[in-house]
Amino acid sequence: MQQETALTKLRPQPSLPRRLWKQWQIQFMALCGIVFILIFNYLPMFGIVIAFKKADYSVNLMKSVVEAPWVGFSYFKEFINDYQFRDILFNTIGLNLLQLLINFPAPIIFAILISEIVHKRYKKFVQSITYFPHFISWIVFGGIVINMLSVESGVVVPILMKLGFIDEPVAILGEATAFWGLIIITSIIKGLGWGSIIYLAAITSIDPTLYEAATIDGAGRFRRIWHITLPSISGTIIVFFLLSVSNLLNSSFDHIWVFQNPLNLERSEVIDTFVYKMGITQMRYSYTTAVGLFKSLVALVLLVAGHLLSKRIAGRGIF
């Protein structure tokens, strides 16, 4: 024992395996995570090779990964030359950026509003009501929305007409220009309450003496929100911002799928729905792998940009 302490004194850092061994319980837990990621995230990456091979319609995909002939970047070229390419890319990036811009801050604002409600029962009531839509699947929720938007029997169109927003009945689902708005609004309705939980938790953990002190100093409600609440939860906000940036190009597939129809296709086709149509239902494995890889590349570029931006503004990046 004595000798060991002497050694540690000589070498303040014991060897790596020794240190790992000392905390093997913790390391084992981490290991499980690593194995999981290796199996489900890294191993499948070998499959990316089929983006450069001719494995469309292949009968035995596993065999094709190895044996199919190389075709270089032809599938990437095919996608870029596709007549829908510009629309798809524009929709994917535009829709996601818009969601980041609107749907990301919405729950924060909502959480602050909720936390300012003094009446306990009313607060709980509002929370339950806003959580509820989160538990309905997009297919069911979308079906309800489709019925509500119906030109002849829906409730939304008459309301909009009475309010004077539109002059004559409009099939909102059939208007390509309305599609993005529809997606933003429905995802706020469905996700607002649930998304605010984390921020509410962060707000409740703020030391109340700060508010008391500020009140004594004469700070009004907005001052307190601006100078105490927001700075206190800024850490949570940044973490969640980075997480959503890293998820940027992954459109919520079922959300878009349920509202998509040939009339709004121009603004509703995103990479994810395109890949589903071409890859899963048409068996064009190579082509869609190439499209998916292309999406990952774009996402990587955006991710790095987000990282640099956040480092500059918040002094804190992803990596």
């Binding site: 079906g143 938007l149 099939a171 129809n261």
Partner: peptide, 12 residues
């Protein structure tokens, strides 16, 4: 033909 026809799914 109803305008809904262009956006309805089979359920509707």
């Amino acid at each position: 033909i109803s305008k809904d026809n262009f956006t309805d799914k089979r359920d509707q």
